[in-house]
Design a protein around this nucleic acid. Sequence first.
DNA 1: TAGGGCAACTTGTACAAACAAGCGAGACCA
DNA 2: TGGTCTCGCTTGTTTGTACAAGTTGCCCTA
Lengths: 245, 245
Amino acid sequence: MARYEHIAGELRDAIVRGDYPIGAQLPSEAALASRFSASRGTVRQAVAMLVSEGLVGSRQGARRIVLGSERSQSFAELHSFAQWARSVGHQAGGQVIGSRRRSATSGEAARLGIEPGEEVLAVLRLRRLDGEPVLVERTVYASWIAPAVERLDPACESVTQELYETVGLVFAYGEHLIDAVSAGAEDARMLGVRRGSPLLRQRRTTTTQEGRPVECSDDRYRAGSVTFSIRNSHSANSLVRRAGD
Amino acid sequence: MARYEHIAGELRDAIVRGDYPIGAQLPSEAALASRFSASRGTVRQAVAMLVSEGLVGSRQGARRIVLGSERSQSFAELHSFAQWARSVGHQAGGQVIGSRRRSATSGEAARLGIEPGEEVLAVLRLRRLDGEPVLVERTVYASWIAPAVERLDPACESVTQELYETVGLVFAYGEHLIDAVSAGAEDARMLGVRRGSPLLRQRRTTTTQEGRPVECSDDRYRAGSVTFSIRNSHSANSLVRRAGD
DNA sequence: TAGGGCAACTTGTACAAACAAGCGAGACCA
DNA sequence: TGGTCTCGCTTGTTTGTACAAGTTGCCCTA
């Protein structure tokens, strides 16, 4: 592990542990540099991580202050339902309801960077959290990865992890669109809610390290089961509001 | 403006303009350093901005690639409904429906960093986009800022901008919790939708540069009117999924 | 006592240098 | 033809230095 990652980890642990409560000042860069026997540049890189995570605030001339104390999730934990569930102490379950090859719609083609009509693999999954159905996942995979997906066990818990172990596929970048929709008939039946009841929808597109799109998905969470959380600041804002559809 | 900000701006413009289409490689750090007559460190700081915005992907050993080409919003544009509407070419409107001082609930006190029962100012606003009601905003202000809020024009378009101009208040950090809820009776009446129809809820807490909480708010958008968008990656992830309530 | 101003401290920006580590393409070999 | 290996390129990490710019508290003065 890089030196700055180690320092960032130590500081993050200290904040989570409460050594630096919310509102408290962090030691100065010079003090941290001397404590960890590192240069100021390395310390700056470490605290920059915490700033981008929204854990600490930073402004020129003033000591850094603690803004929050909750451990944030890695990209993998966000992307993989099973890995996330495990990390927050819940049991993930679920199964494939349906899976078929068909030709891509124009929207899917645009998001996957392929030609409309090109073949894709559409998979419908129901995901459970501690036994309760909470998520309907409609995922469309690009054709080059489809064979590996079809070989998976239908009851496979973590698709992400399995694809990594079997073909070495790594999900590296994601775009997420979050809004609210009414439950359709199929959604309602699978999640055990009334038709028209609110669902939290997350449409995501994921790509490999090389920027090649792998999948796009329409995930619908039962209201109350899941909340998304974002921390941002004047200097770092990845959350964007968009009009309409 | 700092040198690295200038370089980042040039590159961002080039990407948005299409000089570097999605999937294309960016010039190497050495090439950029020579083009802008800057050191490699400064160039790295510039591209780091683009990476954190999700516009560019980066991995050791390989040239950086373009992942997206949409201009992202500033923190101010995200925070202020009016500034956001203007930046995307729509007309923001709205008015204060009700405003009263009361004592803080325990949840509000925790989020504002005050004692339960301490006095706060609760404001209910209806916001319109191009004339259509799209957002019900229930904001609770800490008592120290309440007088300035009460002095505002009830039809004031941008509360954020007005508070900056009158008392110099700057919103610097925010935490956002996003989920879906059913419209209550009041929500439904104000937004012109049926009771129980889906709303996108954004609960946010905002603080000053010093980390002092200013307000917390429960914003409910009519389904279909607004979508939140986040770009993230293996190296930078500010989006977090949380269980239940 | 109220106010301004100075001085120490702290973070931000920029440059230079060196090495580590991963990627990709072409050369080479079986 | 197919696989491997090496070499050059590119990004990642670390240290050092210097100066700019903003904050904070103390001290001095009116």
